[in-house]
């Protein structure tokens, strides 16, 4: 057989399916809170506050059921500047992905900081959330954080 005569076929194959997620009582409270412009964390027996809320303490393994409100302000723990956002990014102007420790929390939350220049950012800077006016009970109910003036 002369291989050069073989028509090598290629066909599209898209694997997709709509899953469902049951958030359970703790994470339901967290996402519902966002739609009401509140940020909830969970507190362990040792008074450690996880925000965003966690269902289980990774160190003590205890189930975390005590809900506490944190923030809405927080502190930048670390950040990475995105100078030229791409089509898949939620923000179209330059912004930073940042780890933000919300006031009253012991852990950091990943979100975005915008409406600022790269040179304005530093570890330890205080930030405040900008809330969406069309909440959907999702982490995107916070559009992004801005530097506290």
């Amino acid at each position: 057989m002369n291989d050069s005569k073989i028509n090598l076929l290629e066909a599209p194959f898209e694997l997709s399916y709509k899953y469902k997620r049951s958030s359970g009582p703790v994470m339901s409270k967290f996402f519902e809170g966002l739609s009401q412009k509140k940020i909830f964390g969970t507190k362990s027996k040792a008074q450690k506050v996880f925000a965003p809320a966690a269902e289980y303490d990774p160190d003590t393994r205890e189930a975390l059921t005590e809900i506490v409100e944190v923030g809405p302000g927080g502190t930048i723990e670390s950040w990475s500047w995105v100078n030229s956002p791409r089509s898949h990014h939620l923000l179209k102007t330059p912004f930073a992905f940042a780890l933000i420790k919300l006031d009253g929390a012991d852990t950091a939350m990943l979100h975005m900081v915008s409406d600022c220049d790269e040179s304005d950012l530093s570890i330890g800077k205080k930030v405040l959330p900008v809330w969406s006016e069309n909440p959907t009970e999702a982490i995107t109910d916070i559009n992004y954080f801005i530097l506290e003036s």
């Binding site: 997620r21 049951s22 958030s23 359970g24 009582p25 994470m27 269902e55 289980y56 189930a63």
Partner: peptide, 12 residues
């Protein structure tokens, strides 16, 4: 449907 728990809550 165990909608009362997350996947984590179910295994726990």
């Amino acid at each position: 449907k165990r909608r009362d728990v997350s996947m984590a809550g179910l295994v726990r």
